[in-house]
Design a binder for these strands. Sequence first.
DNA 1: AGAGAACTTTGACACACCACAAACTCAACA
DNA 2: TGTTGAGTTTGTGGTGTGTCAAAGTTCTCT
Lengths: 231, 231
Amino acid sequence: MAQLDESLLSDLPPFSRLSTGQIREILDQASPKRYDAETEIFREGYEADRFYLLLDGHLRVVRTTEDGEQIIALHIPPGQLFGIAPALQRDTYPATAFTASESLALSWPVRLWEPFVQAYPGFATETYKTLGLRLDEMQTRITELATQAVERRVAAALLRLVRQSGSEVDGGVEVAFPITRKHISEMTGTTLHTVSRLLSAWEKVGTVKSARKRIVVTNAHHLSTLSGTEC
Amino acid sequence: MAQLDESLLSDLPPFSRLSTGQIREILDQASPKRYDAETEIFREGYEADRFYLLLDGHLRVVRTTEDGEQIIALHIPPGQLFGIAPALQRDTYPATAFTASESLALSWPVRLWEPFVQAYPGFATETYKTLGLRLDEMQTRITELATQAVERRVAAALLRLVRQSGSEVDGGVEVAFPITRKHISEMTGTTLHTVSRLLSAWEKVGTVKSARKRIVVTNAHHLSTLSGTEC
DNA sequence: AGAGAACTTTGACACACCACAAACTCAACA
DNA sequence: TGTTGAGTTTGTGGTGTGTCAAAGTTCTCT
């Protein structure tokens, strides 16, 4: 197996305060793996035996209800740790992780979690910081689901997507990975039909441009008006 | 000020592995305070200068939307840490904490958080475990809000209340603190009117018995059927 | 190049739930 | 013991959004 380059980690928050020697140690214990799009990385309820770092690609973290419905808990962009059940003293994964596009991830066995926290300054700190951000986002989503109409929720979800994982294209910002109406409905607690209707309406007034599995936001300002973010 | 007794902490998870000497140290740095019912302890967005331990009483942790609606993020029972923004590297509280009933809490300045984590084995571990549980509960609520009808959500919320903070009474289990229809609607994303109708209907079939600000679950099994938990 | 699957769009309809409204009950306080 | 306000109940009507249905479009695989 080819050796991994230290520059992979040196700019990422959990590792940024470490020396190249320390990063070398960490990399030498990591298992890199490539995943096709729409592939499961780990599954809800299963033994959490490894934790991961996403180097490239995008993930969807999904929960499934007893009656088979899926809801998307969050999206993970490159550079973030995921599957960090050990950080919360869990021994099973709380959700299932799927790749949204072809992805590359490193992983380590959980038994290394404690040593990492002990040995590498900033590792725990940075991890808990992202955990805090995720918790925050979840609270915001609960509030939205509980109080806001579908249109607002979809607008807010779309804004979050392009903010967290948007890529500049001419005329707007595009969601950086393939995403369907169904996926958006699973993020916002509605149906793909309603999402389709909303996107069609927004396309008519020039707020978005969409194609199969692709969405470009051309007027983010209009969306944030709809989402009620800036009242 | 009277000295606090060590037995206050010795049975609580974050402190259970510590010696009486260590518990003494912790107590000597704590500020105890009593709060009336329906009193604010700290407010969303304000500087997180202290973290807390609830000794007695019950709290509601609340988020307010721009348009003034409140939604209840979680309830805190006695024995739990709260206001633990520092654990997530936050410098402001992410929500507002109100007492639901008369309460007693200890608190420490945030600058002691790091020393506590360093000096007391099990303190960090146990803290992150409860954080994990809360995260889990939030995910469950997102799923419910996104996929389930109002009746199911209210049934599930009521079950959670009596499980986490129920006290045995003759003929059932009672929610251990004063709670109104409005509060339940703020936990489930509906209106107090709908909650009132549901409770009336359930009372008719003998599932609950309620009075002003008090709710007794007399048939938990029926509720869990309604909530779809046990299909 | 054709077949099939996956994704999207659009229409018609129903109904769960919210908004509005008003009356009732109980607790607290003077 | 009366008064006030907070909490609760119940009715009526409107509507946002899900459900059901069907056709259109665009990929992918052979």
